[in-house]
Write a protein that binds this DNA or RNA. Structure first.
Length: 206
DNA sequence: TATATGATTGCCT
DNA sequence: GGCAATCATATAG
């Protein structure tokens, strides 16, 4: 259970999204409990992507400097950096920044299969059924105790990190449009493990 | 400054 | 299936 290095995330975003399937999300919580989940669903967001939080930003052609304001600027951070933000004023969503520093991109972790620390996850979530603990981006963040405190922290070292324990064969990988977006629907940038019951119940918009 | 919307979830009818 | 929660950010005026 060693953290994936920054080099893993210093690649095209869609490749990282695909390859994170089967990897583990690990949180060595302050309580001493280790929380582990096998990643079964991801989405990619890139710099030239209308659905990306960096879409309204631009770069100075001379200096390459980012022009604009807001949270999207944090998508230009070093690969392996956490991008955690609040959606609908209610739920935290965990992303990991991809591509070289200075290029925007991130992978949203949408669902994991709970493997260790299920009792802690149940306490965080307030639900009992294993399948309901982490089958959605807001749910898994809550189960793993992830909130804004983790924004811009390194995910290439403890306590919160990814581990490449096993991979998923191409035959088991399915793709679709991304969930819950209104722009960029034509891109099939959601990856998930086919027939896995821990994938989120949401259906794609297009 | 004011209003609309969103990478979601859970509770309501 | 409908819709409220609740706030950061985008966009309009």
């Amino acid at each position: 259970m060693e953290p994936l290095p920054a080099s893993f995330f210093n690649r095209p975003t869609v490749s990282v999204a695909r390859d994170l399937l089967g990897a583990r999300l690990v949180h060595e919580a302050p309580t001493g409990t280790r929380l582990v989940g096998r990643i079964v669903e991801t989405e990619a967001y890139t710099e030239d992507d209308p659905a990306c939080h960096a879409s309204h930003l631009s770069r100075d052609p001379e200096t390459g400097e980012v022009v604009g304001q807001g949270r999207g600027q944090d998508l230009f951070a070093a690969p392996g950096t956490a991008y955690v933000y609040l959606i609908y004023g209610v739920h935290w969503l965990l992303n990991v920044v991809t591509e070289p520093e200075g290029t925007a991109g991130a992978v949203l972790v949408r669902a994991v299969e709970p493997e260790e620390g299920l009792q802690d996850m149940r306490a965080e979530r307030g639900v009992d059924r294993r399948v309901d603990l982490t089958n959605g981006p807001g749910k898994l963040a809550e189960a793993f105790g992830i909130d804004g405190e983790f924004h811009q922290t390194r995910l290439t070292a403890r306590p919160l990190f990814f581990a490449d324990e096993d991979s998923v064969d191409d035959e088991q990988v399915a793709r679709s449009s991304r969930i819950g977006i209104s722009k960029g629907v034509e891109r099939s940038w959601r990856w998930y493990v086919a027939a896995n019951r821990f994938v989120s119940p949401a259906s794609p918009s297009g």
